[in-house]
Simulated assay, not measured.
Amino acid sequence: MRLLTIIALIWLLAACSTTPTQPTLYERLGEQEGITTIVDNLLYEIGGNDTLLPFFAATNISRFREKLIEQLCQVSDGPCDYTGDSMAQVHAGMDLNDSHFNALVTDLVAAMDEAGVATGAQNDLLARLVPMYDEVMNPDDYINAEPTDTDANRVTR
């Protein structure tokens, strides 16, 4: 009887020690295929958005698509490295305001909805993008600033 109790205790301890791992944000977004779908949906949304479309008139859309896929993959803990320019470099000279920023966020949410991304994953992605807000909206503050350790580690073109 004592042997059965010990075996049961070992079995219970083993079951407790193997807690299931939570899927990463990358996995919750649908991995590479899901992120690609989100970006493609976003491009479609931007194409119909009169507030944003003028900003993309001279943009190499293929490059934009490729770099945004990389960036969302990296931000969501996927196996990608973002190799594009800094957010300050990309947005310099655009004179963006909050209506532009909000329009892009609205289009991104619509793109994620269309891709079937769960609300929690959408919120987690948006939360990870929030730290880029200041660099996007105030690029001159970053371009003219002295390089930091973070800047030195950033991979650009």
Rank of each mutant, 00 (worst) to 15 (best):
D95I: 07
Q122E: 13
E31G: 02
Q71F: 10
M132H: 12
P147S: 09
V75K: 06
F64H: 02
D40V: 08
Y82A: 01
T18S: 07
C80I: 03
S76C: 07
N49I: 11
P139A: 06
Y133M: 02
Q74R: 14
N144P: 01
T36A: 05
R154T: 10
R63E: 04
D149A: 14
T37G: 04
A8E: 00
T83L: 08
V39N: 08
A121M: 02
N49L: 09
D140W: 01
K67T: 12
L43F: 08
D141I: 07
E70L: 15
F55G: 04
F56C: 05
E27F: 07
D77Y: 11
L129E: 08
D141E: 13
L29H: 00
E33W: 03
L52G: 02
L43P: 05
L126M: 11
Q74S: 11
S86I: 11
V130N: 14
T83R: 11
I38E: 03
P147W: 13
D98A: 10
E66S: 14
E31N: 05
A118C: 09
Y44W: 08
I10K: 00
V117F: 04
D77G: 12
E33R: 08
P20D: 10
N41S: 12
A8S: 00
Y133Q: 06
P131K: 10
G116R: 06
V105W: 01
G78F: 01
T59K: 06
T18I: 08
Q89L: 10
D140A: 09
A8C: 02
R28G: 01
L29N: 00
L108P: 05
F101H: 07
M137K: 03
S99M: 06
D77A: 13
I46P: 00
I69T: 15
D113I: 04
L52Y: 06
E146S: 14
P54K: 11
T18F: 09
T24S: 14
V75N: 04
T24H: 04
L53N: 09
Y44R: 12
D151H: 12
Q122F: 09
Q71E: 13
S86N: 10
M94S: 13
I143V: 14
L9G: 01
N138P: 03
A8Q: 00
A15P: 04
A152L: 15
Q32S: 11
Y26M: 00
E135C: 01
A115I: 05
G120H: 10
G48W: 10
T19L: 03
F64N: 02
N123W: 02
E27H: 07
M1G: 09
R65G: 01
Q22R: 12
R28Q: 15
L3V: 15
T51Q: 04
P139D: 06
Q89I: 08
I46W: 05
E33T: 04
G48D: 08
G34P: 00
I46D: 03
F55K: 13
I143A: 05
Y44L: 10
I6S: 03
K67M: 11
T24W: 07
N60P: 05
D40H: 12
C80N: 01
L126A: 15
G84C: 05
D85N: 15
G120K: 11
Y82N: 06
H91W: 05
L9F: 06
G120W: 09
A152T: 15
I38Q: 02
G48Q: 06
A127Q: 09
R157N: 07
I6D: 01
A58Q: 13
L96A: 04
L3F: 15
T36V: 03
V117R: 08
G34F: 01
V155C: 15
